[in-house]
Measured scan of single mutants.
Amino acid sequence: GATAVSEWTEYKTADGKTYYYNNRTEESTWEKPQELK
């Protein structure tokens, strides 16, 4: 299949934890999204 550009962006909180934000759905998660595995 075609490689889609991930909708997920990786961010870090002030205390250094990583989370992921989906630009399309406006969803955020602590877990690494399936698309990034």
Score class of each variant (00 low, 15 high):
W8R: 01
Y20V: 00
E10S: 04
A14W: 06
Q34I: 12
K17A: 06
S28N: 08
P33H: 02
T18Y: 10
Y19G: 06
R24V: 15
Y19K: 05
K32Y: 07
E31A: 05
D15G: 06
L36N: 07
A2F: 11
E35D: 11
G1L: 13
A2Q: 13
D15A: 07
N22H: 02
N22E: 02
K32W: 04
Q34T: 12
D15V: 02
A2P: 13
K17I: 07
T3Y: 05
S6Q: 11
E31D: 11
G16H: 02
P33W: 02
K17C: 15
T13M: 05
Y11L: 15
T18M: 04
N22S: 01
T18R: 05
S28E: 10
N23K: 11
A4K: 11
S6Y: 07
A14V: 12
S28P: 02
L36S: 06
T3L: 12
A14E: 10
K12V: 14
T25I: 01
A4H: 13
K17E: 10
V5E: 14
P33V: 01
E10P: 04
Y20A: 00
A14K: 12
K37H: 15
E10T: 06
T29M: 09
T18H: 06
T9R: 09
Y21W: 07
S28Q: 11
T9H: 11
T29A: 07
T25W: 03
A2C: 15
E10D: 02
V5K: 14
A14G: 06
G16R: 00
K32M: 09
G1P: 13
T29N: 04
T13D: 14
Y20M: 00
S28G: 11
K32N: 06
L36T: 07
T18I: 14
L36V: 09
K32Q: 09
W8V: 01
T29F: 06
V5R: 10
A4N: 13
L36F: 09
L36M: 11
T13Y: 03
T13E: 03
W30R: 06
G1R: 13
N22T: 00
A2K: 11
T3W: 04
S28Y: 15
Y11Q: 09
Y21D: 03
Y19T: 02
Y11P: 00
Q34A: 15
K12P: 03
Y21K: 08
E27D: 04
N23M: 10
W8N: 01
T25G: 01
W30M: 09
K12G: 02
G1Y: 10
Y20S: 00
R24T: 11
Y21P: 03
K12I: 12
G16P: 00
S6V: 09
E31N: 05
T18F: 12
K12M: 11
T25R: 02
W8S: 01
G1V: 14
V5F: 13
A2S: 13
K32D: 05
T13N: 08
Q34D: 15
S6K: 08
D15L: 04
N22V: 01
P33L: 02
N22W: 01
S28M: 15
T9Q: 10
Y20F: 06
N22P: 02
P33Y: 02
E27Q: 08
S6I: 08
E7T: 04
K32L: 09
G1W: 08
N22L: 01
Q34W: 10
E35S: 10
A4M: 12
K32H: 04
E7N: 06
Y21G: 02
W8I: 02
K17F: 06
V5L: 13
T9V: 15
A14Q: 09
T18E: 08
E26C: 15
T9L: 10
Y11G: 05
Y21S: 01
K17W: 05
S28I: 15
S6M: 08
T13A: 07
E10L: 04
E10H: 02
E27I: 05
T25A: 01
W30E: 09
E7Y: 07
Y20L: 00
S6T: 11
K32V: 12
L36H: 09
D15P: 00
A14I: 10
K37A: 12
L36G: 08
W8A: 01
Y21A: 01
D15W: 06
K32R: 12
T13K: 03
D15Y: 05
Y19D: 03
Y20P: 03
E10V: 08
Y19F: 11
E31V: 10
K12W: 06
R24N: 10
P33M: 02
N23S: 15
K12F: 10
E35C: 15
A14N: 08
Y19N: 03
Y11A: 07
K12E: 07
Y19V: 08
N22G: 00
E10W: 03
Y21V: 12
T13V: 02
Y19S: 02
T25Y: 02
K37T: 14
E31G: 04
K32A: 08
T29R: 15
T18A: 08
P33N: 02
T3F: 09
L36E: 07
R24G: 06
G1D: 12
G1E: 11
W30P: 07
E31M: 05
E35K: 04
T18G: 02
N22R: 00
T13I: 01
D15F: 04
Q34G: 10
A14M: 08
N22Y: 01
R24A: 11
T3A: 12
T25P: 01
N22I: 00
T18S: 11
Q34Y: 10
E31I: 10
W30T: 10
W8Q: 01
E35V: 06
W8L: 01
A14S: 11
W30Y: 11
S28K: 15
T25E: 02
G16Q: 02
S6G: 12
K17Y: 09
V5T: 13
E35Q: 09
Y11V: 14
E31T: 07
V5W: 11
K32G: 04
A4Y: 04
L36Q: 07
K37C: 15
N22M: 01
Y19H: 04
E7S: 05
E27K: 07
E27A: 04
S28V: 15
Q34H: 10
E7Q: 06
E7G: 09
E7P: 06
R24M: 11
A2R: 13
T18D: 04
Y11M: 15
A4D: 14
A2V: 11
E27F: 03
Q34E: 15
T25F: 01
E35R: 04
A2N: 12
Y11D: 03
T18W: 06
D15T: 08
A2Y: 10
P33Q: 03
R24Y: 14
N23A: 14
G1A: 14
N23G: 06
E27L: 05
P33K: 01
V5D: 12
E35P: 05
T25M: 03
E7C: 07
T29G: 03
W30H: 07
E27R: 03
G16A: 01
E31S: 05
A4G: 11
N22D: 03
N23H: 15
A2L: 14
N22K: 00
N23Q: 13
Y11H: 15
K32E: 09
T25Q: 01
S6R: 09
T9I: 14
G1S: 13
K37E: 14
E10N: 00
T29Q: 12
E10R: 03
Y21R: 04
Q34F: 12
G1N: 12
Q34V: 13
W8G: 01
S28R: 15
W30L: 08
N23E: 14
K37G: 14
T3M: 13
Y11K: 14
S6E: 12
T9S: 10
K12H: 11
E7F: 08
T9G: 08
